[in-house]
Nucleic acid binder design. Structure first.
Length: 108
DNA sequence: CATTTGACTTTGA
DNA sequence: TTCAAAGCCAAAT
């Protein structure tokens, strides 16, 4: 059985362009619905050579990562907007439109 | 082995 | 509606 870490990587790698996933959602897919924090931790420590789309992982409110990540929220936001993701007036992602709901990766 | 650390989530006031 | 506090748990130290 692969480590929790590795499973997070597998799933993040499956998030399609123009969609986002939440930490809790990923944790659920792995089978640890209360492990949202660990998902954040895993993504934070993701080896760069995996080239994961970690900018597509946000919290459940559709808020972006803290300032110190991605060189600031403005940077992350530009990346996401370039993929077709839209934001509301508060700077949160329109989760109802962009939340990734098609999870069909197979057996990690 | 015990403790700390979070890019989180839920709950209750 | 907003906010603080309390759970959460795999890795790292």
């Amino acid at each position: 059985l692969k480590s929790f870490y590795h499973q997070v990587y597998e799933i993040v790698a499956c998030i399609p362009e123009g969609k986002v996933a939440t930490y809790g959602q990923i944790a659920q897919y792995i089978g640890r619905p209360r492990a949202a924090r660990i998902v954040g931790w895993a993504v934070k420590n993701a080896p760069s050579h995996l080239h994961l789309p970690c900018h597509r992982v946000v919290n459940r409110n559709g808020e972006l990562a803290p300032e110190h990540v991605f060189g600031g929220v403005q940077i992350q936001r530009k990346i996401l907007e370039a993929e077709g993701i839209t934001f509301d007036e508060k700077g949160c992602i329109h989760m109802d439109k962009h939340l990734w709901q098609g999870m069909h990766y197979k057996n990690i």
